[in-house]
Design a protein around this nucleic acid. Structure first.
Length: 404
DNA sequence: AGGTATTCACATGAAACTATTCTCTGAGTTAGG
DNA sequence: TAACTCAGAGAATAGTTTCATGTGAATACCTGT
């Protein structure tokens, strides 16, 4: 039996609620950035010295996710490059996201990524790091120019690698004869500069700018503006935008989250053949985002993580039946060992499993709290924090993934 | 009763090891002149 | 003799093990009343 797809497609086109969905996508760069005037101005002020051919101060930006840091810097960068072009000033401003796994999450790879952006070539491995440094120097020092490196999510890089590499970068200026480098560090972690080598702190933090979270009203503005362009007229009510903003404001004012929510709510409304984006779709979108995130994590984590998670899963189940409500690291490890024997997998040390538990905690799948049981030692008390309507689905994914 | 010292069961840290992937180098091999 | 092949040395990285040290508070152990 053939399904009549023609109708589905036809109505999909006709009933589209979107004018331009890409406006709500996270990589979209809007041409105005509301409620960030002050920060943009500050960044611009500091970088403006480029136009006088002076090296700008190193700059450090921090604020939670989705507070417009990256967007603001990109914006200033674009404007500045235009201006510099007009004035014939030699500048390179390169943006590197230090969190991208396999691309720029180690000292070597960050350097390699920069070099690549500057037009050089570096093999993925096999070269000593200092050789990569000299290649970098060679590449930029051939003429008088200013090089600004924007390092997004530096905190990630630094606690993965050590702060030595930022120090190296700042120190590089003394080895350059013609060119000069400035750094712009961007971090989500407000406390990042506190636990970092003082030399790095003073050089990277020559100037600091804080991006506070958006409040619900500001988020509403942002959403309002984008919705006007992204959706067709009359599709989104005032109340819907307000609710969406309120949801995101609860999550530490994350604009990215708000936009995602809006976009997915739109998609869901379309799928349901609704003429408008209704309030209930915001709720559904919220659930869907959460759900997709969890399922994605569970599917993509490596086998050992799944084994540990599966152990926690089973123990949680057992604890409900037998009524002993608390689960500790030791319990998990025992179950895990048994599970490894059963699946003929090699058993990791408790040390490692302890770290894995901590990592699963970071991912938000469980809630692990270090507690002391007094004479009975110190452990993590572990609680599953996957909503119960997903349990079945998650369990089947793991069973399949582990071949149980 | 009130105070302190112990002790448990891991947490947390640092270093070292392993396997894999990749480059570079130089010895040995090959083919053409 | 130039070009080519291939093994071995050296690097980077991810994931782990080994060794070492840290730790919060329930309990055991005193002490003096």
């Amino acid at each position: 039996m053939t399904v009549e797809l023609g109708n589905i497609f036809a109505s999909a086109v006709k009933n589209s609620l979107f004018r331009d969905k890409s406006i709500l996508q996270i990589n979209h760069t809007p041409n105005s950035i509301p409620h960030r005037d002050k920060q943009i101005e500050q960044v611009a002020n500091i970088l403006a010295s480029i136009l006088r051919n002076e090296r700008p101060s190193n700059l450090f930006l921090y604020g939670k996710t989705g507070t417009g840091k990256t967007l603001s810097v990109q914006y200033v960068r674009d404007e500045l490059l235009k201006k510099a072009m007009q004035m014939g000033v030699e500048v390179r401003i390169e943006y590197i996201n230090c969190k991208l796994r396999k691309i720029a999450d180690t000292e070597y790879r960050i350097l390699a990524a920069i070099i690549k952006k500057l037009g050089g070539e570096v093999p993925a491995t096999g070269l000593p790091t200092d050789q990569v440094y000299s290649k970098f120097i060679e590449l930029i020092d051939n003429k008088k120019q200013l090089v600004v490196l924007i390092l997004d999510e530096v905190d990630q890089a630094v606690n993965k690698i050590s702060d030595g590499f930022i120090y190296n970068l700042t120190r590089l200026n003394s080895e350059l004869s013609k060119a000069q480098i400035s750094l712009i560090g961007i971090s989500n972690d407000v406390t990042f500069l506190d636990n970092v080598d003082p030399r790095v702190r003073s050089s990277l933090g020559e100037e600091e700018i804080v991006f506070p979270p958006y409040n619900a009203l500001q988020l509403q503005d942002i959403l309002q503006e984008r919705c006007k362009k992204a959706f067709k007229d009359g599709v989104v009510d005032e109340g819907v935008v307000a609710k969406c903003a309120a949801y995101a404001a609860r999550e530490h004012g994350d604009a990215r989250r708000a936009l995602d929510l809006m976009r997915i709510a739109g998609e869901l409304s379309e799928r349901e053949q609704s003429k408008k984006v209704e309030l209930k779709f915001i709720d559904m979108a919220n659930e869907k985002i959460e759900r997709d995130k969890i399922l994605d994590i569970v599917e993509t984590e490596p086998k050992q993580f799944q084994l540990v998670l599966y152990s926690i899963f089973q123990l949680t189940k057992k604890s409900k039946i037998e009524n002993f409500n608390r689960i500790f690291t030791g319990d998990v490890y025992n179950f895990y060992q048994a599970l490894c024997n059963k699946t003929k997998t090699e058993i990791l040390t408790q040390r490692r499993v302890s770290d894995i538990i901590a990592e699963i905690d970071m991912l938000g799948l469980i809630n692990a709290k270090v507690i002391s049981k007094g004479r009975h030692g110190r452990t993590r008390e572990i609680k599953l924090s996957i909503p119960s309507n997903l349990h079945e689905k998650v369990e089947s994914i793991m069973i399949e993934g582990l071949g149980l």
